[in-house]
Design a protein around this nucleic acid. Structure first.
Lengths: 108, 108
DNA sequence: TTCATAGTTCCAAGATTATAGAACTATAGA
DNA sequence: TCTATAGTTCTATAATCTTGGAACTATGAA
């Protein structure tokens, strides 16, 4: 994860609808969710949702796979974790994390 | 850290100049840095820098304190760690972190 | 006071992002 | 092939963000 990728991923998550989409996909687990299920769950018009899904795909935070007539979107947890790693590295640079966080993070 | 605060913090970091400012402040340690030092280090015009610093302050990611004629900006590490905690919680929801990340995160 | 330095706010322009209807593409089933 | 369903792309509009010069505010020193 470099600076550009980090900015892209952060920008993708820095929007209420997209953060909700991502969180919902994470909650859905490895099966993923179709756009129609997401649209119903989050009450977002199909075209708007499609726009946001594309943003998340471009930022490598979710993946998509077709199964018959449906698409399945899934969270790219490895990339999300790479982002967390990048932020962790650059928030701790030159000093220790504050203890409360070191503890909470280890229980993840 | 709630959804709104997370979106604000993510948006504040989702911009190349601001991410660099934040990283530079983290690197500077507890003394912080003045806007002129930041402007020199990052080659950003004063007005543009001031705009970005305000965004970061509004997102609670940095703090500012006047000392005589100078201002000292410092990273708000607790808030940054709260953001990481929020993201960690919502990326791991319902399933374990992938192992490689659990390891790396614990060494932070 | 007066001046210089540090930094901000004001402002206008340009660029980017978000929203959602209409039209289009792809797939499965009859 | 024809039709219905799933989803996307096209398009226009509105909103928001970014940039940086000019003018302004605040502080310390002479």
């Amino acid at each position: 994860m470099n600076e550009n990728a980090a900015v892209s991923a952060l920008a993708a998550l820095a929007q209420e609808a997209r953060l909700r989409v991502f969180r919902t996909l994470v909650g859905a687990g490895p099966t993923g969710m179709t756009p129609s299920a997401l649209a119903a769950a989050l009450d977002i018009p199909a075209t708007t949702l499609s726009f946001h899904l594309k943003e998340l795909v471009h930022a490598d935070l979710i993946t998509v796979e077709r199964q018959g007539r449906n698409l399945h979107y899934r969270p790219a947890l490895a990339h999300m974790n790479a982002l967390l790693g990048y932020l962790t590295d650059h928030c701790c640079q030159g000093q220790a994390c504050i203890p409360s966080v070191r503890k909470r993070r280890a229980t993840c």
